[in-house]
Design a protein around this nucleic acid. Sequence first.
DNA 1: ACTGTGATGACACGACGTGACATCAGGTAG
DNA 2: CTACCTGATGTCACGTCGTGTCATCACAGT
Lengths: 186, 186
Amino acid sequence: MARWEPGSRGRLEKAAFELFAEQGFSATTVPEITARAGLSTRTFHRYFADKREIVFGSEDIPANAAQVLADASPSDEPLDVIMKSLRTFAETRFEGRRDDLRMRGEIIRSDPGLRERDLQKREAVGRVAYEALVARGVQPTRASLLAETCVTLLYVSVQEWLGRDDEKPLADIIADTLETLRSALT
Amino acid sequence: MARWEPGSRGRLEKAAFELFAEQGFSATTVPEITARAGLSTRTFHRYFADKREIVFGSEDIPANAAQVLADASPSDEPLDVIMKSLRTFAETRFEGRRDDLRMRGEIIRSDPGLRERDLQKREAVGRVAYEALVARGVQPTRASLLAETCVTLLYVSVQEWLGRDDEKPLADIIADTLETLRSALT
DNA sequence: ACTGTGATGACACGACGTGACATCAGGTAG
DNA sequence: CTACCTGATGTCACGTCGTGTCATCACAGT
């Protein structure tokens, strides 16, 4: 028998989300979380840099995005790279997780600090997109614009997707959103 | 003679930016700032919600943006509203302040927490743009896209503007950036 | 059997942000 | 002229957060 129960990280996440559901994010303290998980607060901060980080899960989205972007066909136009990557991303990281994402969204919306952190995550995705485009030889200004627009497309579409009752695939919504943007800029 | 020297807020800002220049943002504590300004830490938090806020000045950018957007001609197309507002904004809040903005930019770039707060400020501007557009009858999804794109245009252009040596007006750069975006989405 | 190694705990600490209450100058009403 | 109110500030106490440091101990490899 191991000295410590395994899965500390998972226990911390479980305890945290339970408490967030019971009392809300801001009313929940780190000691409360660790007490429920049977760990010390010091251990909490070994897994999560701060209290907010636990909300954003363990998936390293930027790294994943960089991977998807790096796999793009060398002959594709920049916009095609973006759109194909967004499709892949939608299908692998979003589709089938609506309930989970809705729950997280609610928690994030409930706290200013979490909204702030959410924006930072978004920006991190934009930065890897920017770097991937620059690596393909796209001009910096154009790359910035495309990267930011990419993130905008994704998040506006996700909002739309989460708000819907039907099962329209996120990838389709993203394509529609691009069309809407094009027409709005004319 | 007044019991307290007037201009507490100004003294706090002055002391803070001096210390940030000397030691950097994160190495500067609130007590250090208030000691130099001759005030208590409690008073600091009466003027600034937290240590980060002091970097972003006292100007209520979102309120100003809302004003500019509300003054737009009722007959303008949404995109024209955005572009004209951006022009006004560039001329009244940015032009002539390059050095100040560069200094702030450096401080903000030096600290993750400040970058996070900066993104929040950006988002706040986006939200007032969104609300102004919805108030004009623009569809929600389209309004989101335009609002986010508006903020993207502004910030990408400001980056470009701050990086330049010449005196090309920000408003012109924004117009160019829109053209770049249009061509990138084709 | 010995020795790392890695995950955890225990403890102390500094900084942050807030609530509650005291202080006091200046203006205003009576 | 006095009494009161108001607004800006100070003082104190507190809870939470995040980090540095060191001790502990099961397990694996030699």
